[in-house]
Design a protein around this nucleic acid. Structure first.
Lengths: 346, 346
DNA sequence: CTGTTAGCGCGTTCAA
DNA sequence: TTGAACGCGCTAACAG
């Protein structure tokens, strides 16, 4: 009988150990050292044979806190989001917190519901990767004392910490790389930037920085990731004069454009292709797709650290809010059609 | 002030509405119709202005149930697992349940911890995608009355419902496809099947069915997905006589082998490549990789249905345990190097 | 060091 | 139809 879970209660353990609830409670709390070794041993044994584990719901009810963190994710099927969840979950567990993850499938309505659910479970803190602009509910939550951190995307008017990629730096790195590789004109492709602050930030930076670096720039905003949405512009762009490259605002866009290249029979490299977000298959396609990898684990960890700082509100140990990407150069941004020995990049 | 969450209590609402806790409780429970319209209106308004939402932790404490389902995932960074989570979460939400997801990173030790955590939060049911063989803890959980469903992978000796792919059918479909395409010898590549029942089931079926279908068969078991682990065998196999194809036991293996093909400069098609699990990029690589897609949403939905049946234990509405895959034929299993007009397959 | 008492926010008797 | 009283499992005062 290895681990008969939870269903035993504090009282049962207490009676079996011939003591009171309080001592048992102390045994499982931070005051274990205030108990005599003898008592400890008795409780230890009783709890073990009963397979007792504290009921965290009941604990949360009093003052102990639920030890629960809530996380809202805009699109759980996006590998980038999953990587964030993974990082957050690891960091939370390391601090003794559990995570309840709610997906919103990029639906602002569902987002409101999920937020309410999270609040109803008395989470001690919230990590928000917003779909829409749930400013009001979040404002209310903050006002009612729930610590809160924004992940990857900001929310209008909401004064809260935002943890994520340094978008300006990412665009700068991309442009610098493309210039260095000899490209003279760049098409920036992004999903509709109205909902997501990250997309806006990248787009704006691109528009600011492309010309100063001597690049001819052009922009394509996508409402759909269907191949057909990309084809006409891509086709025209590929025929433009001079060495030209496409820069993709995120992983989804990179996927859509890789499809576009395939449909049009375009060779990567002669027409450059580069994307923000690193994906499993980027090293696999033809000469390899150059990417900017986000440090997702670090971002997730930073979010948790930041949140817990707010909770303990002591040591304002500053955490890094803007994280630098890592360049993974591959064949898709090499103008010369000379195929390199090794196009992988770990 | 749109949604000041949760922090208001039943009592505050009651006093503001000039009534008692009980009535408010009823208003939010299934007995709302036993209240006079007048009272309903008053409570409605009071609750609204206070932004009251029932505290689900407290509710779970009594008899009401926590409305929480727990889910254990072996590897949250695997797109297949994520798809399952997505399906489960949708179905759970549709039934008014929330989901707390714990990742185990394929670590049996961490798995035990996470299981204990889930139990401690008084989840009403458990959906388990096992990493190891946590037979004892699960047995104990079942014994203590927690409904439980196994997802994708079985656990030794544990008598519980298992929901997932029909592995035998999947292997059969794959072999049939390969035979039809003219391949005469097949190499089956799998990760180490010791921990995961699914891998065993597929492997065994392959070994049983390959010869009867007139195929020369060979097997490669991987302890690592590094390219080097694949290369020697793959190289030798590619030089074997007659039309030969590689069959990959899951998405990770498909990725590893696609890398292997690339490293060796092997053309897909002339040497066949096929995999279980559909991934974003399978249609993108060279002539397209043929796959067997798992109906992840249906599987997730079935798991929740099955679990909820156990909870209500009324209507033993049977759910489908073994789900059929869907074949996505592409160029990687076409012997003739003739490139098809369209190698995509939705 | 240890036990007693009093709630946490809620659902559920049971009377009224 | 409504309300008062009790208890869920636990922690936090406050005594002994």
């Amino acid at each position: 009988m290895p681990l008969p879970p939870s269903r035993a209660t504090l009282i049962e353990v207490a009676t079996l150990a011939g003591t009171s609830k309080t001592s048992v409670s102390r045994f499982f709390g931070p005051e274990r050292d205030k108990l005599s070794p003898a008592l400890c041993a008795r409780i230890e044994r009783a709890a073990h044979t009963l397979g007792y584990r504290p009921n965290l719901m009941a604990r949360g009810l009093k003052g102990g806190g639920s030890r629960l963190l809530g996380m809202l994710v805009a699109d759980i099927r996006n590998p980038f989001s999953v990587a964030l969840v993974h990082g957050v979950e690891q960091a939370a567990r390391a601090q003794g917190y559990s995570l309840i993850v709610c997906n919103t499938d990029n639906d602002p309505v569902l987002e409101q519901t999920q937020l309410a659910t999270l609040a109803a479970y008395q989470v001690e803190g919230l990590i928000i990767n917003a779909s829409g602009q749930p400013e009001a509910p979040l404002q209310a939550l903050m006002h009612s004392g729930v610590p809160l951190v924004l992940l990857d995307r900001e929310v209008n008017q909401l004064k809260a910490d935002v943890i994520g990629l340094d978008n300006a730096q990412a665009i700068d790195m991309a442009l610098e790389h493309l210039v260095l590789q000899g490209y003279r004109s760049v098409l920036y492709v992004s999903e509709s930037p109205t909902q997501a602050s990250t997309r806006q930030a990248r787009l704006i930076r691109f528009e600011q920085q492309a010309r100063p670096r001597g690049l001819t720039s052009r922009t394509l905003l996508l409402n759909s990731l269907e191949p057909d949405a990309v084809l006409p512009t891509l086709k025209a762009f590929a025929q433009s004069a001079g060495p030209a490259a496409v820069l993709c605002g995120n992983g989804n866009v990179t996927l859509a454009l890789a499809r576009g290249f395939q449909r049009l029979g375009l060779a990567m490299g002669p027409v450059g292709l580069m994307g923000i977000d690193e994906l499993d298959w980027c090293a696999l396609i033809a000469p390899g797709i150059t990417t900017l990898a986000q440090p997702t684990d670090a971002i997730g960890r930073a979010a948790v650290t930041c949140l817990l700082n707010q909770l303990k509100s002591t040591t304002p140990a500053t955490v890094l809010h803007r994280h630098a990407p890592r360049l993974c150069p591959r064949g898709s941004t090499q103008l010369s059609s000379f195929t390199p020995e090794e196009s992988n990049n770990p």
